[in-house]
Structures are given as C-alpha cells and as structure tokens.
C-alpha cells in the first residue's frame, strides 16, 4: 500500500513536487518509448525492403525500365533487423517482456524480493555497461578505419552506431530499474495503455 502511494507521488504526471530523480526516470521512459517506435519503424521498413527486392527482381523481367535487382535489399534489411532487435530491448524490459526464471523471486518475502531485484538489476547494469562500451569501441574502430560493407560499399559504422545506441538505452533502462527497485517503486509498466484480449497475465 505504502509502496503504491510512493509510486504515485513520484511518478504521477504533472504532480506538484517532482524530484530530479523522477524527472530522470521519466526521461529514460520517454526515450524508451521513442526507441520502441523507432524499432517498429525499422521493422516496417525491413518488410518493405524485402518486398521491394522481390518485386524488383520479378517485375524487371516485364518492365524494361526497372533495374534488374535491388542490391541493397538483403543487406539493409539485416541492418534494420539489428536495429529492431536492439531498439525494442529497453521497452521490452520496461514492460516486463524479457524472459527470466522466477522460481526464487516468487518465493521470497516482498522485502527480500526487492533486495534481489536490486542485485539482479545492478548485475545487468554492469554487464550492459561493458556491452555498450564494447560496441562503442567497435563502432569507433569501424569509423576510424572507414570500414565499408562488401555488398554495397556502405560505411558500416552507421548501422553499428544505431545498434550501440539501442544497447545504451537498454543499459539506461536497467539503471532506471535498479533505482526503482531501491526506491521501492513499481518496476514494470505495460506497453499498452488498455488491457486487451491478450492472454498475457491471464
């Protein structure tokens, strides 16, 4: 009960007293939502690329002015896939969509559960920080060497930077989760506003 009140006070929109911490958490959430939408956009474009590649190949037989192939179709689709995968990661975490084993968590007292949640989130933050740093370094190396793809001569640091950004945001969301766990706030929020016919949680 107390927990929910605390949550409402800090998280409610436009409340009179909003701590800098709550603002930071909200900012991360806003970025996460934006990222999720960018992920959806990437998914839609990758579908479009695959269809376009196929259509070009089939139609060019009959339509003389069409190019015989869309050489970037597969390559760019794969970049968009990487972007979809990483951009969605933070939002999936926020909505509780990443798979985990809850055997221990479900048997603990609320206090102990919070403690374990803090610990687990901090482990995740540590690993994701390493992960983000590794990808950043990787991207910078590609940039410094002006590495190109062999399929289309595209500078690969661009899609790599996109993936790095997605992973950075996942790290931030894990950090936000650790903070929420410490501050005894609700950890997860559904991605959809309305409860629909989904079987999730039934």
């Amino acid at each position: 009960m107390r927990q929910e009140q605390a949550g409402e006070r800090v998280e409610s929109d436009g409340g009179p007293r909003r701590s800098p911490l709550a603002l930071a958490l909200d900012a991360i959430d806003a970025l996460t939502r934006l990222d999720g939408w960018l992920g959806a956009l990437c998914l839609a474009s990758l579908t479009a690329f695959m269809i376009a590649g196929m259509a070009t190949r089939i139609l060019s037989t009959f339509v003389p002015w069409l190019p015989p192939d869309l050489p970037i179709a597969w390559e760019y689709s794969s970049y968009l896939m990487a972007a979809t995968f990483t951009f969605g990661a933070a939002m999936t975490l926020r909505s509780g969509g990443h798979i985990r084993v809850r055997i221990l968590l479900s048997r603990l007292s609320p206090g102990a559960r919070r403690a374990v949640e803090v610990l687990v989130s901090l482990i995740a933050v540590a690993f994701c920080a390493f992960f983000t740093w590794a990808l950043l370094h990787f991207t910078l190396t590609s940039y410094a060497l002006d590495e190109r793809s062999i399929a289309s001569d595209t500078p690969v640091w661009i899609p790599q930077a996109v993936v790095t950004f997605g992973v950075l945001l996942m790290s931030l969301q894990f950090l936000a989760r650790a903070v929420r766990a410490l501050a005894n706030l609700p950890l997860e929020a559904p991605a959809f506003e309305s409860k629909d016919e989904t079987i999730r949680g039934s």
């Binding site: 992920g39 959806a40 998914l43 979809t84 995968f85 999936t92 990443h98 798979i99």
Partner: peptide
C-alpha cells in the same frame, strides 16, 4: 499501434536470448 509495438517487443525478447 498494438501490432507494431507487440511485434517489436517479441522480436527484442527473442533476439536477446538468441544473442
């Protein structure tokens, strides 16, 4: 809206495990 977000969430969930 639900299709887009739902698909992205599932993709990200599976991708993290694949990775």
């Amino acid at each position: 809206h639900k299709i887009a977000i739902g698909a992205v969430l599932t993709c990200a969930m599976i991708a993290l495990i694949v990775l």
